[in-house]
Amino acid sequence: MYATRYSKPKNIEEGVSALHAAEDGKLLAGGMTLIPTLKQRLAAPDCLIDLSTIGLSGISGAGDGLIIGAMTTHAEVERSADVQKQLPALSVLAGGIGDRQVRNCGTIGGSIANNDPAACYPAALLALAAQITTNKRTLAADDYFTGMFETALAEDEIITEIKFPKTHKASYAKFGNPASRYAMVGVFIAKTDAGGLRVAITGAGQDGVFRHNGLEAALAQSFDVAAIDATAIEDSELMSDIHASADYRAHLIKEMSKRALQAIG
């Protein structure tokens, strides 16, 4: 690991100042991606800015919807009574990320800031029409995820919380990579007031998470497995890598969509 400085700001302002002062500063959330990246020398930031002590953790279930602080860990989301009651699919999703130690440290804000094309949370945020609040503004999930490992965040923008709207139906099914538990394909189906019926796919797209128009149209017509079966899944825009071909990922999209729908109750 290259030499780097470490700073622990007490609030957002100090965090932003530390980012401005650094040549190539990086925000450190749970560190589950960033620290392995540093150890492999794939990144060499001159300063790490730890967000763990600026009060961005916690879950509030009051009112219509859920608000989850950016530094809330996957384990906290998995075990939250509010999440289990209002949005159980999100608890299931959080409980399926990585392994227990990853879930104990990894955070929702870190996950969506990194926007790994095989991460689970981006599918939930997009399908649920979530809103991402930062120190500067509030963004709709539709405008936030802009490509593989790319987001609409500015260099000195810090995610503070994620708001999930009132949800009528939600379900997530993933085919995890047997070694890493990253999604080879993950499908999140949701019905919300804010976003209507949506089907978001992670793990498969060349540009990261995306909504599947064909599945959304089919399920809007008829909300059942037969509608998914009758939908053609194009593979020309899907990823091919050592884990799976585009063709196989297309097959998994259909299967995971069916599993998600069957579990939606």
């Binding site: 470490y6 560190g31 620290i35 384990a75 392994d99 227990r100 130690q101 440290c105």
Partner: peptide, 25 residues
């Protein structure tokens, strides 16, 4: 590489992989 778990310790009662956390944290 954060995978094997031979380095697991408890930090404030929570199990973590100590190879994937800075001592400063």
């Amino acid at each position: 590489t954060s995978q094997c778990g031979a380095c697991v310790v408890h930090v404030n009662g929570i199990s973590v992989k100590s190879c994937t956390m800075l001592a400063a944290q």
